[in-house]
Amino acid sequence: MRIRLAAAAAVVALMPLSACSSRDNTPETGTTQNPAAAFQTIFLEALTAVEPGLAADPDAIAKGRSQCSVLDDGDSDGHAAAMRFSTTEHPLTDEQGMAINKALQLTICPPEK
């Protein structure tokens, strides 16, 4: 379990965050790369590191975006994320929820500056 959480943290830590500055992750430079898609891919990789199989959920990105509002309200303890992303096949702990929240904050819903 701790290895998976560490792997999720490592995946997210390797992300190139410097090219994006706004909530919707639009690039500061005139690149043709789609940063939103890249952040979604990295988020899905982090989900897989937290619990294999979570990224296979076709609603994973939508669940992540919904979780952004919880994070915006200041609730990052992990319980809400664990409940949102848990399935009968993949029940999650609050600790895993915290890892998901961290991945979200660094990818598809970073804190507003």
Rank of each mutant, 00 (worst) to 15 (best):
M1I: 15
R4M: 08
A8E: 10
V12P: 03
L14C: 11
L17I: 02
C20Y: 10
C20Q: 06
S21I: 07
S21R: 10
S22C: 12
R23H: 08
D24T: 14
T29N: 13
N34K: 09
P35M: 11
A37P: 00
A38Q: 10
F39P: 00
Q40M: 06
I42N: 11
E45D: 08
A49C: 02
V50R: 06
V50I: 14
V50A: 06
E51S: 15
P52C: 01
P52E: 07
G53Y: 01
L54D: 04
D57I: 07
P58K: 01
P58V: 03
D59G: 04
G64N: 06
S66Q: 12
C68H: 05
L71P: 14
L71S: 13
G74L: 04
G74W: 04
S76K: 12
A80N: 14
A81D: 04
A82L: 01
T87E: 03
H90I: 11
D94N: 09
E95P: 03
Q96R: 06
Q96V: 10
M98I: 13
M98A: 15
M98R: 15
N101A: 08
A103K: 07
L104C: 11
Q105R: 15
T107C: 00
T107K: 01
T107R: 02
T107H: 01
I108H: 02
P110H: 00
P110V: 01
K113V: 14
